[in-house]
Amino acid sequence: MKAANFDYVRVASINEACQALADGGEDARIIAGGQTMIPLMAMRLARPSLLIDINDVSELAGITVAGDHLIIRAGTRQADTLASEVVKSQLPLLADALSHVGHTQTRNRGTIGGSLVNADPSAEIPLIAQTLDATIVAQSTRGQRTIAAGDFFDSAMATTLAPDECLVEARFPIWPSENTGFGFHEVSIRNSDYALAAAAAQTTLDENGNCLRLSIAICGASPAPLRLINVEQALTGSELSDNMIKAACANIDDLIDPQSDVHADAAYRGRVAKVVAARAIGDARDRAKGILV
């Protein structure tokens, strides 16, 4: 359980990181928290030739609000994001999901960007990016580009980032807070373990309590976090009764592609996905109505 040999360089700026990636060839990798990368290296599932350490790059850390977006720089620690008051007030869905990510020791090192680029099919941070339509910003020596979350997550543990690109930030839309609520539900074997399936929802109601806007996505039952567009369409404009939510969420078999593993078979995962999706929407509705805190 020891990693194979590699070269190591510590960089001080995004430009230096991009240059090192461009010079380092296909097997060069960025390392930040290392909480996914180092286990993969220990198990020899990853063998990078060069690790580019960005932990000293101060321009890659921090959380800011710009207009109606919350911007989280890629190297921001999960623990700092979880403790952030602005995240709690502007993006409570992310704050709630983060409490399910790993443990104190791993959140102290693990970063928001690291979780996004690792794109684990059952990871919570990619799920929230997908639910809220976050915009991912990547940089290379060729310049900067923005990628919609829907185009970013490709399949299990794979994104559309090019090998020479460094993720620099994620921009999460902030919804107007009035009559808006979120819901997050997860089923896992143990507290803080990877989710068998999880769901995140956010909704805004109109003055009559009907659904004006709904976002719902699930993870764990598809190769990448999945927006349930047909559920959103079926429920928008409705009163979001429990029965309607349940019926809409029962109807996702064509969208999901759950896999079997030692923890759960595909059929069970698919069932769990439907249940957590319905619960997440129900909580979002109740928070929007102010009857759930």
Partner: peptide
């Protein structure tokens, strides 16, 4: 978690960090 140490005031796993980092 057996390998936990405190780094700069915070608990971390010392098997999930290369010493050079």
């Amino acid at each position: 978690g057996a390998c936990s140490v405190v780094m700069d005031g915070k608990p971390v796993r010392s098997c999930l960090m290369f010493a050079v980092m």
